[in-house]
């Protein structure tokens, strides 16, 4: 986003907003991964403990989701570098 028209106080405020938003986005990503990987990996409720198979599935699912999210982020940033005016001073 382009904050070049912002004065100092406004930029400081936006930085705080962005910081808070990144925290919320991180927590949302975390909750999404838990929900998605649980849904996909856990289908046996004859026991309340995670089986080693479920555990491995959840770990791989998490790893893969993070890598996926990072890759989408990189591509998205490239595509929008120009059009969104992503120049942050």
């Amino acid at each position: 986003m382009d904050f070049s028209g912002f004065n100092g106080a406004e930029q400081a405020h936006m930085n705080k907003v962005i910081e808070k938003k990144q925290m919320q986005d991180f927590l949302k990503l975390y909750a999404n991964i838990v929900e998605k990987c649980f849904s996909t990996c856990c289908n046996d409720f004859t026991s309340k403990a995670l089986s080693s198979k479920e555990d491995a599935c959840v770990m791989n699912c998490t790893e893969k989701f993070l890598k996926h999210s990072e890759r989408v982020g990189s591509r998205f940033a490239e595509l929008n570098a120009g059009t969104l005016g992503c120049t942050r001073e």
């Binding site: 986003m1 962005i18 938003k21 990144q22 986005d25 991180f26 949302k28 990503l29 975390y30 991964i33 838990v34 990987c37 995670l50 555990d55 959840v58 770990m59 998490t62 790893e63 993070l66 999210s69 990072e70 982020g73 990189s74 998205f76 940033a77 929008n80 570098a81 992503c86 942050r88």
Partner: peptide
Amino acid sequence: KVGEKIQSRGAASAGGGGFGL
């Protein structure tokens, strides 16, 4: 488990902050 995995990876940067804002 997912929380531990994410923290061990230091993946805080994988969220919304990951696309250059």
